[in-house]
Amino acid sequence: MNNSVNIKLTQDQLDMLKELGNIGSGHAITALSKLVSNKIEVSLTSADIIPFWKVPELFDDPSIDMVGIYSNIPFNSDLAIIQIFTKESIISLINILADDDRIAVEDLKNIDDLDDFSCSIINEIGNILSGHYANAIADLLSIKLIPNVPKIAIDTINAILDGIIAKYAQISDYMILINTKLKVSDINIEGTICLIPSISILKSIFKILNLKYDLNL
């Protein structure tokens, strides 16, 4: 297939993005592990440049409903952190932090199925993770990054990602995703934290880090 709208990154640049993801997710996951007082297994962070239609393939089974927590980060261009958790994870987190069985997995179909307290717990978890993630990379880049209040949706992975793909694949057929998978086996938590920079953000990041960039757009 002919793909002339392309993003070319060198191995160095990709490694740098991976490192950025490692540092960000490292801080976020440390915060989460304190919250749940449990050890969290973390996969290596991957930085991928992938065609827009393949983005959902980076996540799990497309037929299962997942919980998506979307935090937009206001900066000079689009930047977002999206956290994807299984429904079981969200319920585990609510149970750990609220100390009782508030809702069963099969009853959780819509965000409105959660009571206010449970909702604010998820919001807070989203806030903590994206806040720590953004803070860590902001420190590194000496810029200011403060995520907006997260939005939550429960749906299939494809549906959750549609609007995000629409936003980030407007000028290019490729998207950059910096993905870190996490898991807490004992309490059944499984999810992904994903940083999505727009192409112009990428340029600013490379500029700050004084790396040569060759974004063929």
Partner: peptide, 8 residues
């Protein structure tokens, strides 16, 4: 078929 149509 399309599984998971959101804003699309």
């Amino acid at each position: 078929s399309i599984y998971g149509l959101g804003s699309c």
